[in-house]
Design a protein around this nucleic acid. Structure first.
Lengths: 255, 255
DNA sequence: GCAATAGTGTCTCTTAGACACTATGCA
DNA sequence: TGCATAGTGTCTAAGAGACACTATTGC
C-alpha cells in the first residue's frame, strides 16, 4: 500500500468504488455434528439461497465488524452489546480466515470480503421472532450451494479448523468451561469426521503440557447408557500443543 | 457480506470511503541471510521511512495486484508483463498472508490492506536507474521502524514463513531449480535462525516422500573450502511434508 | 597434508497407536 | 445381569536427535 508518489496525488473518487465486507464462518457442534451458521437470502442475487452471515464494515475494526455480525445473527450478546447481561459471545474464539476479492465474486460491484472463523460452544437456536429469525445452524455436510463464493469460504474455514485442532487447544472452544476427556474426544471426532481411540486419546491429552487441567471434580452421574463418572477438566494455559495431536494419516492429503 | 435487506438499499456513497491496497512481504536469502524487499518512502506520512512494497488494487484479482507490485518494485518480469522474455517471477511462491484494517492504521483515510507473502530465489539487486531504483533487500533483523503497521505485517510474515518450512516443501522456493541438500539446509538455517545438524538433516530430507527427487547429476566441483561433490536434487511432488520437519523445540513458544 | 563438507551407521529416547484389561455405574 | 464408558498397562514400530565415522575434494 501507500506507494509514495501514488498516494500523494490520490483521490478515492478516481478509482472504481470497492466495498469491504466481513463474512463469518461460525462453527459449533450440535447433536454431535459440526455445524455452521447460515442465513437465508431474501433478495437478488441468490435470493432463496443460503449464505454465510456478514455485512459491511463500518467505523470499527474488522474483528469488531465480525463480532457485530455474529451477535446480530445469533441474537446473542457479546462485547458489542454491553446492555445485555449475559455475554455468550465472550467465550467464542474468533480469528481471521482469509480475504476474498475476485473481481466478479459479487455481480453488482467490486466487493472485497474479509472472512472470519469462529468456534463457539453449543449455542441456543437463534430465537424466532427476533432479528435473527432467519439464521440457523446447519451440519456442514449439508451446507452446499451457498450464495456467492461462500462454498469456497466454508471449505477454507473447515480446513483451517481441522488443522488448528492438531496443534492448538482450540477444541476447548467448542465445549463448556468444564468438560470431560470424552466430550473433548467427541469434539475432535465431529470436526475431523472420524472416531478416535478412546484410551489412546485420553492418555495423549493428559500428556500434553498445558492442554487441560483438572478441576478435581467429576460429573454428577455417569453416561446415559452407563459407565463411571468422568473427571472434569478446564482449558490449560498452553496456546500450542506440544507435541501436536495429529490427524490419522491420510497419504492422499500429502500430494 | 451481502446481508440481504442491507444491500438492497445500499449505495456506496452512503458510507465512508474505504481504500483497498495490497502489501507484499517478499523474502529471499542473500548471502546466507533471510532478507525482505523494502522501499523508501519519499512523501508524508512516514517520509524517509522504509515500507513494504504495495499499492492500490485495480481491476484485477488481489493476487494479480500483489504480483504486479512485486514486478514493478523489483524490475523483474512475471506473468504480468509478457513482453519480457524472462519470467523471473514465475518461480516465486506467492500466498495471502493476512488483512490489516485497523481504522487508524493510515492517518489519511480508512485503508484496508491485504498482505501477501512471497518466497523468491536469490534475485538480482533491483537495477539502479529503473523505476525500482528505490527498492532494496534488507536482512530481516535490520528491518525495523517501518512505516504504518508494517513492522507487525513483517513479523506475521516471518512467523508464517518459519511455520511453513516445517510442514511444506516451500524451502525449495528459495533455491534454484536444482539444489544440493546442503543448500536446502542453509535455507532452513537462514529462515529459522539456527543451525541444523548436517547428517540428521540429510537423512531426514531424503526420508520424507516427495520432498526432493534426485536429478542423477552432481555439482561440477566441491565446496569452496573443500569437500566432495554433492548430488543435485529438484523439488518433488509433495505439497505437504509427512512427517513434518519440526523446528528445534522451544518450550517458551508454547505458552 | 589439512580442513571442510557429503553422506552413512548406530544407538537412545520419545511418541503414536494397537490391543488388552479393570473398574464403574446406568438400565 | 448386561453393556457402555472411564481410565490404565503394555507392547511394537517409527521417528528425532546425538554421536561417530568414512569418503571426497579444494587449497
Amino acid at each position: 500500500m501507500d506507494e509514495a508518489g501514488f498516494l500523494a496525488a490520490y483521490d478515492p473518487r478516481d478509482y472504481p468504488a470497492v466495498a469491504v465486507t466481513v463474512d463469518v464462518v461460525a462453527l459449533t457442534i450440535r447433536d454431535g455434528r459440526l455445524s455452521v451458521l447460515l442465513v437465508e437470502r431474501g433478495t437478488s442475487p441468490f435470493a432463496g439461497h443460503r449464505a454465510l452471515p456478514g455485512g459491511f464494515v463500518r467505523e470499527e475494526t474488522l474483528e469488531q465488524a465480525a463480532l457485530r455480525e455474529l451477535a446480530e445473527e445469533t441474537g446473542l450478546a457479546g462485547q458489542v452489546d454491553a446492555s445485555r447481561a449475559e455475554g455468550d459471545l465472550d467465550r467464542v474464539h474468533l480469528e481471521q480466515l482469509q480475504t476474498y476479492g475476485q473481481p466478479q465474486r459479487d455481480p453488482r460491484m467490486r466487493v472485497v470480503s474479509v472472512a472470519y472463523l469462529a468456534f463457539a460452544p453449543s449455542l441456543p437456536e437463534p430465537t424466532a421472532g427476533s432479528d435473527a429469525a432467519r439464521a440457523f445452524w446447519v451440519p456442514v455436510d449439508e451446507a452446499k450451494d451457498l450464495a456467492f463464493d461462500h462454498d469456497e469460504i466454508l471449505a477454507d474455514g473447515l480446513e483451517r479448523a481441522r488443522a488448528k485442532l492438531e496443534y492448538t487447544p482450540l477444541a476447548t472452544a467448542f465445549t463448556g468451561p468444564e468438560f470431560t476427556i470424552g466430550e473433548l474426544r467427541q469434539v475432535y471426532a465431529a470436526v475431523w469426521g472420524e472416531d478416535l481411540h478412546a484410551g489412546n486419546f485420553h492418555r495423549k491429552v493428559l500428556s500434553v503440557p498445558g492442554f487441560v487441567e483438572s478441576t478435581g471434580a467429576t460429573t454428577a452421574r455417569g453416561g446415559e447408557r452407563g459407565g463411571p463418572k468422568a473427571k472434569l477438566y478446564r482449558a490449560g494455559d498452553a496456546r500450542l500443543l506440544h507435541p501436536a495431536l495429529l490427524r490419522p494419516t491420510r497419504e492422499d492429503r500429502v500430494r
